[in-house]
């Protein structure tokens, strides 16, 4: 009990054990839900953008409950940045790829030339691909936005 009290005193303003524990437990589920939203965008409300925001929100939640450093430990800045780049690259890359494979820009059915799934199925799959890209990019940017705004741009100097 005393230990607990000491620990509570050491805690910074706004941090509480209960919240931290709850967040620790919730984050995987939030992330799972985010992935679900991205993947299931074809059949239910949601899609890359909303899912990406939810994924990003899970890290924001970590940062809120603990501190920014904890969230950086889950996903380093370099990884985050790469994910963002890769996300946008997937979208633009798919778009250019369509053009390179003889179709028009963003004409997913042209990708049929790579793996023959049928033009309509490729349209569906192409949408899925770009949604994943959007999800990655949005997640990364949301996290990065919060890191930077939350730390006042002190990211490099150990938050």
């Amino acid at each position: 009990m005393k230990l607990l009290q000491e620990r509570t005193e050491k805690q910074k303003f706004g941090e509480s054990l209960i919240i931290q524990t709850a967040v620790r437990m919730m984050v995987p589920f939030i992330q799972l839900f985010g992935l679900y939203v991205i993947v299931h965008g074809h059949y239910s409300p949601g899609g890359g953008f909303q899912g990406g925001v939810i994924l990003g929100a899970s890290f924001v939640l970590l940062a809120l409950a603990f501190d920014l450093r904890t969230s950086v430990r889950y996903m380093s800045e370099r990884v985050n940045n790469t994910l963002g780049n890769v996300g946008v690259l997937i979208y633009t890359g798919v778009a250019v790829l369509c053009a390179l494979f003889g179709g028009l820009f963003l004409d997913y059915s042209a990708l049929d030339a790579i793996i023959p799934l049928g033009p309509i199925a490729w349209r569906s799959f192409g949408i899925f691909l770009v949604e994943v890209g959007v999800g990655l990019a949005v997640m990364s940017i949301m996290v990065s936005l919060f890191w930077d705004l939350g730390s006042g741009g002190e990211m490099d100097e150990g938050l």
Partner: peptide, 27 residues
């Protein structure tokens, strides 16, 4: 497109060009 969510279909395919730039905007 075989996508029952019309919003996703329009967003991802018919107006995919917009969405690409939307992603670039947030990037």
């Amino acid at each position: 497109t075989h996508v029952p969510n019309l919003v996703t279909a329009v967003l991802g395919d018919y107006r995919g060009y917009d969405t690409m730039f939307e992603t670039v905007v947030i990037y």
